[in-house]
Design a protein around this nucleic acid. Sequence first.
DNA 1: TGTACATCAGTGAACGCGCGTTCACTGATGTAC
DNA 2: TGTACATCAGTGAACGCGCGTTCACTGATGTAC
Lengths: 233, 233
Amino acid sequence: MTKTRRERIRAATINEIKEIARQQMGESGAGALSLRAISREMGMSSPALYRYFASRDDLVTALLVDVYTAFADALEMARDGRLQGDHIGRFTAVACAYRDWAVASPQEYALIFGVPIPGYKAPSDVTSPIAARSMIVFLDVLVNAEKAGKADFSDSYVAITPAVAAQLQPWVDKLQFDGDIEILYTAMSNWSLMHGLVSLEIFGHFDLCITDVSSGELYRTEVAALAKRLSIQ
Amino acid sequence: MTKTRRERIRAATINEIKEIARQQMGESGAGALSLRAISREMGMSSPALYRYFASRDDLVTALLVDVYTAFADALEMARDGRLQGDHIGRFTAVACAYRDWAVASPQEYALIFGVPIPGYKAPSDVTSPIAARSMIVFLDVLVNAEKAGKADFSDSYVAITPAVAAQLQPWVDKLQFDGDIEILYTAMSNWSLMHGLVSLEIFGHFDLCITDVSSGELYRTEVAALAKRLSIQ
DNA sequence: TGTACATCAGTGAACGCGCGTTCACTGATGTAC
DNA sequence: TGTACATCAGTGAACGCGCGTTCACTGATGTAC
């Protein structure tokens, strides 16, 4: 655990690179990330970066991992800020944390959920386990509410056909999920709504028709509607 | 209306430029659109393009207009493929057309709804009226269903607070909308879910947990659930 | 404690690339008389 | 119908830019004896 001096400095430099990269992403978008621009801002020559990342793609991957992690952390923190038995509190907190995080760091959100960066393909073996984490947090809240008998998933949904149930199988397997398939389905559906609302807001597509989306009023109303629909308590 | 020979050729060239641009967008993403690449493919020199578009941004804007129009056309066609009184048919058709169009032309979808192209700002006076068209098609279906007494928007939603209602005002004004505000709200909400489902699918974020998203099974299930929730008939 | 050597961080120059855009130009197509 | 002129489409060369990446190198920092 005790690192040598060199290792500490090295780690600090890596962090600085990533921090500046994140910052530049915030200014000009994830696609415009440039090693030369980063090195310029750091007062280094650009080849020096190759001591830390083997290529631009490697840096992007590292950022992706960080961002996924930060996102999942934010959701977990929101959940754990409420008592275990406070199911509706947890549901609302996680759903709102989703938006809050995205609003606070739109370019990070875009990096994760936006159009893939042209010419860059994330190595899914690295990416996908971390990507799953955030979704699991949300699912977890639903599962626990249901186990406690404080939510009802069967009501306002159409029957899930066997075909759809089969499509969800990989997800079931991956999580070794033993609950009702309706819960998984509901999680996906709610997640999709959250994603839709947030990305429309962040990318400015609500500006046409709504004033002051940034208040989050509309989003919270939707979350409340979801909670009501699931009779979550 | 009768165009001169020169005008016809000119129009044809403009179309060719736009077509190749769309095609290249489909291959390498909207952000990677390059005048030089287009001219290369056309067997022209790149300066020649400046006879047709004053700049790269101008071309992007033209594409944006085309794409928005094509999208709205697709939704309208879907709607008009069903009888006026067939409200649930129209609802389903429009909702499914939304996804079908997006799946068929993901890069176009990304151009409209994705992360804005870095360094490009769409002139909203040109863009926004056309952007509204597609949403209006969807809204129109809901309004007519409600007028005919074939839908119920009050049921599964939380009460809309005055604050939220106020936020929707610009939209009401723009459309000179005289219906119930719940309808507008519902349209936005449903639209957001559709957007969420489709963009998660298109950008590959469902790949982790679902097999064969491309069948559309899941999406159709969601649309059916929406229809049920609105008691649309 | 001092010396010899290996490892590491960082540099400057360079390669080769593609980009948007401007400019002065050549021919072809249209138009007015 | 023929001629003079204006308009238009398209070209090739060039400007200036930024990019990712490689290479041979210089010093500094660590390590083994």
